[in-house]
């Protein structure tokens, strides 16, 4: 079931590519994940037939995963020429940063603080963002979220810092 892609990557793609072999990296990724999981599963007992232990499935699947990792890595070394696309680091930093900021602020400061923070940080991920537009949009969205989640759906989510009495 060998799946290869003999077609040459397009010129545009090559420019953005990191010069790393796709399948080799995929293989190494799987092997690393499998190793971590197997290590964590070491203390668990795989058990016997009559008492399948807690360790059986984690160990078996991580071994299987490692097997596929080796297979993919070999496939890459054998000659699958595909390269990895470039990463969008700006996206990773601001999008994930926004989510982390939300998680950190929602309980101590509430929705009306955490929401705008998350939106403003995430908007920096996109070079097209216009400052005034996003500020206005954030204000509207925050109000909408309050109405939707608090007033209509009654979710038990903090709204404002407890210092202010709510």
């Amino acid at each position: 079931m060998v799946v290869e892609d003999p077609a040459e990557p397009s010129a545009g793609k090559r420019e953005r590519s990191l010069n790393l072999n796709l399948e080799v990296c995929a293989g190494i990724f799987l092997i690393a994940a499998a190793a971590a999981a197997y290590y964590a599963a070491l203390p668990l007992d795989a058990g016997s037939m009559s008492g399948v232990g807690s360790g059986l499935l984690p160990k078996a699947t991580s071994l299987g995963l490692a097997g596929f990792g080796v297979y993919l890595a070999l496939l890459g070394l054998w000659g699958s020429p595909e390269r990895i696309d470039g990463f969008s680091f700006r996206g990773i930093i601001f999008v994930l940063g926004a989510i982390v900021a939300f998680a950190a602020t929602v309980r101590p400061f509430g929705l009306l603080v955490a929401g705008p923070i998350a939106m403003l940080i995430s908007s920096m991920a996109d070079p097209d963002t216009r400052p005034l537009e996003i500020l206005l949009f954030t204000a509207c969205m925050t109000a909408a979220c309050y109405l939707l989640f608090k007033v209509v759906l009654h979710l038990p989510i903090p709204v404002l810092p407890p210092l202010l009495g709510y």
């Binding site: 608090k150 007033v151 009654h154 709204v159 404002l160 009495g165 709510y166």
Partner: peptide, 24 residues
């Protein structure tokens, strides 16, 4: 729902200082 909504809005506006428990 409407009452709950009004109550929720009302509570946000009133600071909870030294009133009879429970105030929120």
């Amino acid at each position: 729902t409407a009452i709950a909504a009004i109550a929720a809005l009302g509570v946000t506006a009133v600071p909870a200082v030294a009133q009879q428990y429970p105030t929120k």
